[in-house]
Computed example of a mutant assay.
Amino acid sequence: MYQVIKMYGDFEPWWFIEGWEEDITDKLVFENYEDAVLAFQKEWTDLASRFPKEESKGGMMTAFWDEADQYWCEECDEYLQRYHSLLLLEAKEDSKKKDLAPRVRPCKLKKGNCVNY
């Protein structure tokens, strides 16, 4: 099973910061990879036409953004960029959602403590 996931949040999708699921705005589920790739490509084309900035990692994770789409983070004491993200993931049918710790703000991440850095 495969999922095409759309997200809107203040970090790029490849970080998979705890609580990343909170930023999901849409999820499409497919039984076969080919159908999932077609849906991903369609969504990618739509987002690319609407946002001037784009960065991809691993081929199937892309963040799109407009530099004007930022918000003030009181906790961070700075403006944070918002991203429209698109992912294609293979879904494990037996995976269960576990209780998650409070989400860490991107501005609080430190290079030495981040497993994805």
Results as ranks from 00 to 15, higher is better:
Ile24Tyr: 04
Cys73Thr: 03
Ala36His: 01
Tyr79Phe: 13
Asp26Lys: 09
Gly19Thr: 05
Trp44His: 15
Val4His: 02
Glu93Ala: 14
Glu90Lys: 15
Tyr2His: 10
Tyr8Asp: 01
Lys111Ile: 07
Val29Lys: 11
Val37His: 02
Ala101Pro: 04
Tyr33Arg: 14
Ile17Gly: 01
Lys42Leu: 08
Gly112Ser: 10
Trp14Phe: 05
Asn113Ala: 09
Ala91Tyr: 10
Asn32Tyr: 06
Asp10His: 13
Ala101Thr: 08
Cys73Ala: 10
Gln41Arg: 11
Trp15Tyr: 13
Lys92Tyr: 06
Asp23Asn: 11
Lys27Ala: 12
Ile24Pro: 00
Pro106Thr: 06
Asp35Arg: 10
Trp65Thr: 02
Glu18Phe: 06
Lys57Thr: 08
Glu93Ile: 09
Asp66Trp: 05
Leu28Val: 04
Glu93Pro: 05
Ser49Gln: 06
Asp23Ser: 12
Lys57Ala: 07
Glu22Arg: 15
Arg82Glu: 06
Trp14Met: 03
Trp65Lys: 04
Glu67Pro: 05
Glu18Lys: 13
Phe11Trp: 12
Ala68Val: 04
Lys92Cys: 07
Tyr79Ser: 09
Glu12Arg: 14
Thr45Arg: 13
Asp35Leu: 10
Arg50Val: 00
Phe40Glu: 01
Ser56Ile: 01
Glu74Lys: 12
Leu87Thr: 13
Ser95Gly: 00
Phe30Asn: 01
Met60Lys: 07
Ser49Tyr: 01
Lys27Trp: 00
Asp77Glu: 15
Lys111Tyr: 11
Gly9Lys: 01
Val4Gln: 03
